[in-house]
Amino acid sequence: MSEIRRLHPETRYSDAVIHGGTVYLAGQVADTLTGSVTVQTQEVLATIDRLLAEAGTDKARLLTATVYLTHMSDYAEMNAVWDAWVAPGGAPARACVEARMARPEYRVEIQVIAAL
């Protein structure tokens, strides 16, 4: 049976769970709550980069991504940052949905799954 590794576990969730050659990241949000969608997306993607590296992988090995936006009117602004970040030729399967966030200041949340 494969070992399960958890990065930064808290009471309700872990930032990442690693099992069977796959890394599952929790949804990531920005710490900068007053920032634009651009600023928040940049911060979220930097956090994803850091967590993937800590798990032993990187964005070139993304399998799926789910992007949550407070308003779909922010779709193009978020995509401008996403498109500059995603590894060339390594775009994951992705969904983008409008959702109510845990805090009204959050404009974007991104969850990814990657291969090791």
Rank of each mutant, 00 (worst) to 15 (best):
E3H: 07
E3P: 00
E3D: 11
R5M: 09
R5Q: 14
L7D: 03
L7M: 12
H8A: 06
P9L: 10
R12F: 15
S14L: 05
D15E: 13
A16D: 05
V17A: 10
V17W: 08
T22K: 12
Y24C: 07
A26R: 04
Q28E: 10
V29W: 00
A30E: 03
A30H: 03
T34I: 02
S36Y: 07
T38I: 15
V39Y: 02
V39N: 04
V39L: 09
T41E: 03
T41A: 15
Q42H: 14
E43S: 06
E43R: 10
E43Y: 06
E43F: 08
L45Y: 03
L45D: 03
A46P: 02
A46I: 07
T47F: 04
D49S: 15
R50S: 13
L51W: 05
L52C: 08
A53E: 15
A55P: 08
G56S: 10
T57L: 08
K59H: 15
A60W: 05
A60H: 11
A60D: 12
L63K: 13
T64R: 11
T64N: 09
A65K: 01
L69G: 00
S73N: 14
S73Q: 14
Y75F: 06
A76H: 14
E77L: 10
V81E: 07
V81Q: 05
V81G: 04
W82T: 05
W82M: 10
D83P: 02
A84C: 02
A84P: 10
V86D: 05
A87I: 04
G89E: 05
A91F: 11
A93K: 08
R94S: 14
A95K: 14
A95F: 07
E98F: 12
R100N: 15
M101V: 06
A102V: 11
R103D: 14
R103C: 06
P104G: 09
E105D: 14
E105V: 02
E109S: 12
A114E: 03
A114D: 04
A115P: 02
L116D: 12
L116T: 13
